[in-house]
Measured scan of single mutants.
Amino acid sequence: MAAAAAAGAGPEMVRGQVFDVGPRYTNLSYIGEGAYGMVCSAYDNVNKVRVAIKKISPFEHQTYCQRTLREIKILLRFRHENIIGINDIIRAPTIEQMKDVYIVQDLMETDLYKLLKTQHLSNDHICYFLYQILRGLKYIHSANVLHRDLKPSNLLLNTTCDLKICDFGLARVADPDHDHTGFLTEYVATRWYRAPEIMLNSKGYTKSIDIWSVGCILAEMLSNRPIFPGKHYLDQLNHILGILGSPSQEDLNCIINLKARNYLLSLPHKNKVPWNRLFPNADSKALDLLDKMLTFNPHKRIEVEQALAHPYLEQYYDPSDEPIAEAPFKFDMELDDLPKEKLKELIFEETARFQPGYRS
């Protein structure tokens, strides 16, 4: 834990890192770190609560700039109880001085990944967590956004079992017609939660990839272990087919990539493993919904509104309290091709509203 900075004593240090967030945020305490930044909790002297502050230093890398800009653009436009918001952003007053960006968010005690390492969940908890994931996802999908990296560590939890989806750095506007060349190379989302079509096709992607990830998360809540822990690309596919069985001819016809289709045709026939054999203690309604989410063919996979209306979630289902976005989200430009200098300018502009004396 960093010592509390005395008023006016300059930035606090946390594990050798400068955290320049005073005077409003003090009493910093280390939480963890990701690929390009550290997260601390801090005391907000204005709202009198502890908050989470993520320090991001992305400006050396085009990919990190892209992810940072995506996350900020999306989260500043989203407003939903099951999606983490941005409360404040701290950065230098000029673009030349801006080396880091500090993002202030609600402090959540833990995440689903940490929880599943230590606790076996009751059916009631599984049901409530799944409902909140789908409630947040309904809003995301209504904005025409794909999260693309749903996994237990991106689901934040607090002691009252509130759940918030975080990390929109890989999110995209849904565009089933656009052929994202190089899709697989830039697709760094965790393999275990990846839909089979991501490994088999490169053309376009749809909201059904997020539903697949939610199915993987439900299976993990039922058993405290990942359902498809593939060691590499082909191993991942083999794990999936080992449980779902061989795809039907109709399902194979959806695979545009001939090499991928021929690979699947070359494999020995596998039978589907019954879900109640894998999860003998699970609620039968939970397994019915799991089956509809972990469907090989993305066109037959359940959609988020149908999933919310499934009998497993009937005690929570309330369409009048499951809000959607006001308007579909649009990125003005494809960020993939922009140089990091341009992305830095866009991050600077996007964060201006939090600067003292800002006038829109």
Rank of each mutant, 00 (worst) to 15 (best):
residue 57 S to V: 08
residue 356 P to S: 14
residue 293 M to K: 15
residue 182 G to T: 12
residue 221 M to S: 05
residue 58 P to M: 03
residue 289 L to A: 06
residue 46 V to K: 04
residue 7 A to P: 02
residue 101 V to W: 04
residue 300 K to W: 05
residue 136 G to Y: 01
residue 205 Y to V: 13
residue 42 A to H: 05
residue 135 R to V: 04
residue 350 E to L: 02
residue 191 R to T: 08
residue 171 A to S: 14
residue 286 A to F: 01
residue 304 V to T: 03
residue 98 M to G: 06
residue 357 G to K: 11
residue 224 N to W: 10
residue 274 P to D: 09
residue 22 G to C: 11
residue 119 Q to W: 03
residue 352 A to G: 04
residue 158 N to L: 13
residue 188 V to L: 12
residue 15 R to G: 13
residue 187 Y to M: 04
residue 168 F to R: 05
residue 104 V to L: 10
residue 165 I to C: 05
residue 115 L to E: 03
residue 311 P to D: 04
residue 328 P to C: 03
residue 295 T to F: 02
residue 105 Q to A: 12
residue 39 V to Y: 06
residue 270 K to D: 06
residue 193 Y to T: 06
residue 74 I to W: 07
residue 253 N to F: 06
residue 131 Y to V: 07
residue 66 Q to V: 11
residue 52 A to C: 07
residue 198 I to P: 01
residue 28 L to C: 10
residue 300 K to G: 11
residue 210 D to W: 07
residue 226 P to E: 09
residue 184 L to Y: 12
residue 36 Y to H: 06
residue 111 D to S: 02
residue 67 R to Q: 06
residue 159 T to W: 13
residue 359 R to K: 14
residue 320 S to W: 05
residue 172 R to F: 02
residue 47 N to D: 14
residue 351 T to S: 15
residue 305 E to S: 01
residue 59 F to C: 11
residue 13 M to Q: 13
residue 254 C to H: 11
residue 42 A to V: 04
residue 51 V to Q: 08
residue 295 T to H: 03
residue 168 F to H: 02
residue 278 L to I: 04
residue 250 E to F: 00
residue 344 K to G: 12
residue 85 G to I: 04
residue 81 E to F: 08
residue 277 R to W: 06
residue 104 V to G: 08
residue 245 G to F: 04
residue 331 F to K: 01
residue 186 E to T: 06
residue 341 E to W: 00
residue 74 I to F: 15
residue 287 L to G: 05
residue 248 S to C: 09
residue 82 N to P: 10
residue 119 Q to C: 07
residue 77 R to N: 06
residue 105 Q to W: 03
residue 148 R to H: 04
residue 90 I to E: 01
residue 334 E to F: 00
residue 94 T to K: 08
residue 330 K to H: 01
residue 44 D to Y: 15
residue 185 T to L: 08
residue 141 H to Q: 11
residue 266 S to M: 04
residue 28 L to M: 14
residue 176 P to M: 06
residue 57 S to L: 05
residue 240 I to Q: 11
residue 243 I to T: 02
residue 190 T to M: 04
residue 22 G to S: 01
residue 346 L to E: 13
residue 97 Q to C: 08
residue 233 Y to A: 07
residue 244 L to A: 01
residue 108 M to K: 15
residue 220 E to N: 07
residue 242 G to V: 11
residue 360 S to E: 14
residue 357 G to T: 00
residue 69 L to K: 04
residue 207 K to L: 11
residue 333 M to W: 03
residue 257 N to Y: 15
residue 134 L to Q: 15
residue 239 H to V: 10
residue 306 Q to R: 08
residue 135 R to K: 10
residue 282 A to I: 01
residue 87 N to K: 15
residue 303 E to T: 06
residue 228 F to G: 00
residue 101 V to F: 08
residue 207 K to I: 09
residue 212 W to H: 12
residue 129 F to N: 03
residue 310 H to T: 02
residue 297 N to P: 01
residue 158 N to I: 15
residue 263 Y to A: 04
residue 188 V to M: 10
residue 68 T to D: 02
residue 290 L to E: 11
residue 279 F to V: 12
residue 300 K to L: 08
residue 111 D to I: 00
residue 13 M to W: 12
residue 13 M to P: 14
residue 2 A to R: 09
residue 53 I to S: 08
residue 285 K to M: 07
residue 223 S to F: 06
residue 167 D to W: 00
residue 351 T to K: 06
residue 91 R to G: 01
residue 357 G to N: 01
residue 150 L to E: 08
residue 339 P to N: 12
residue 163 L to A: 06
residue 304 V to Y: 02
residue 3 A to V: 13
residue 124 D to S: 09
residue 281 N to M: 09
residue 68 T to F: 01
residue 197 E to H: 07
residue 67 R to C: 03
residue 195 A to Y: 01
residue 35 A to V: 10
residue 204 G to N: 07
residue 191 R to L: 15
residue 307 A to W: 00
residue 102 Y to R: 06
residue 149 D to G: 09
residue 110 T to I: 10
residue 274 P to W: 06
residue 38 M to N: 09
residue 254 C to Q: 07
residue 230 G to N: 00
residue 144 N to M: 04
residue 196 P to G: 09
residue 200 L to K: 10
residue 347 I to W: 09
residue 272 K to R: 12
residue 123 N to H: 09
residue 251 D to N: 13
residue 227 I to A: 01
residue 360 S to M: 14
residue 61 H to Y: 08
residue 186 E to Y: 05
residue 195 A to P: 07
residue 204 G to H: 12
residue 125 H to M: 10
residue 32 G to M: 03
residue 92 A to K: 00
residue 30 Y to R: 10
residue 38 M to L: 15
